[in-house]
Computed example of a mutant assay.
Amino acid sequence: MARKDIFKFLEALNENNSKEWMDKNRSWYESAKGEVIDLFDPILESIKEVDPRIIQPNARKSISRINNNLMFHPDRPTYKDHFGVVFGYGRGLADFYVGLGLREIDVAGGLWHPDSEKLKKVRQEIDYEGKRLTEIIKSSAFQDTFELYKADALKTTPKGYAKDHEFIELLRLKSLAAFRQITRKDVYSNGFKDMIVESYMTLVPMLDFINTAITDE
């Protein structure tokens, strides 16, 4: 199965993570990347039919670089152990992500580690419209599929907000994002496309909430 070749390549890369190995196996990398493109092109097409705001013209333009940024993270290996695919509405906005990795296969969306100005705007939106966000994340579709990313949440109270604020748990978040983990079996299944499209549609209300916060003056 072609989809299995994606993970076979990643396994080999993980065992031989060097530029020398990659240079020798560049055609294999391009073949595995091509399988990712073939997998996601129809998914992106279906998503764009229901949400034409997506700016990526095709899956090739949606794949993240497999090189790690060693300038800022010199301790990391030369290459990532996953293929990342990102769909979104523009640079700097909340977006949708699928990561096909060796250790984890993630479907996620939101705003990851925003700068202080964006985080301030998101918190203001939560302060004013927290009830709407609560309704989004407590919907049955969201609850059955996703969970909020809370790993880096503040343990204290963000400046300017009362510790007994109605939405204090949301205000403590430093990233407003949600994720679900799936399996290789899901990727190999005939239902993978529908799973990703449905996941995207479930996250759209949260993405819209975030993007309204960071783009409105």
Rank of each mutant, 00 (worst) to 15 (best):
Q143K: 12
L111A: 01
E147N: 09
R180H: 14
L111W: 00
G191C: 07
R123N: 11
M195F: 08
L171S: 02
I137D: 15
H113R: 07
D144V: 00
E147K: 08
I182L: 08
F167A: 01
D127C: 01
D186M: 10
A177Q: 13
S140H: 06
I126S: 00
K131L: 13
D186A: 09
T134G: 11
Y128R: 14
S140V: 06
Y188F: 15
F167V: 02
L170C: 03
K163L: 01
Y128W: 13
V187T: 03
L173T: 07
M195A: 09
G191H: 09
L119A: 09
P158R: 04
K120Y: 12
Y149C: 12
A162N: 11
L176A: 02
K174D: 12
K155T: 05
I168Q: 07
D127P: 01
L133H: 07
K150T: 14
E129N: 15
W112Q: 06
Q124P: 09
K121A: 13
E166G: 08
Y149F: 15
I168M: 11
R172E: 06
L119M: 14
K193H: 09
E135D: 14
E129P: 00
I168P: 05
P114G: 04
T183K: 09
F142N: 04
K138N: 15
W112I: 11
K163P: 00
E117F: 10
K193C: 05
Q181L: 13
F142A: 01
L170I: 00
S140F: 05
V122N: 02
K138D: 14
D186R: 07
A151I: 04
F192W: 06
Y128H: 14
A178E: 13
K150P: 04
D115W: 06
T156G: 15
K193D: 08
K121I: 06
K174T: 15
Y161N: 05
Y161H: 11
K150W: 02
N190F: 08
F146I: 07
L154E: 02
E129R: 15
I137M: 07
F179W: 15
I136A: 03
S189K: 08
T156M: 02
D144S: 12
F192E: 05
M195Y: 06
D152F: 11
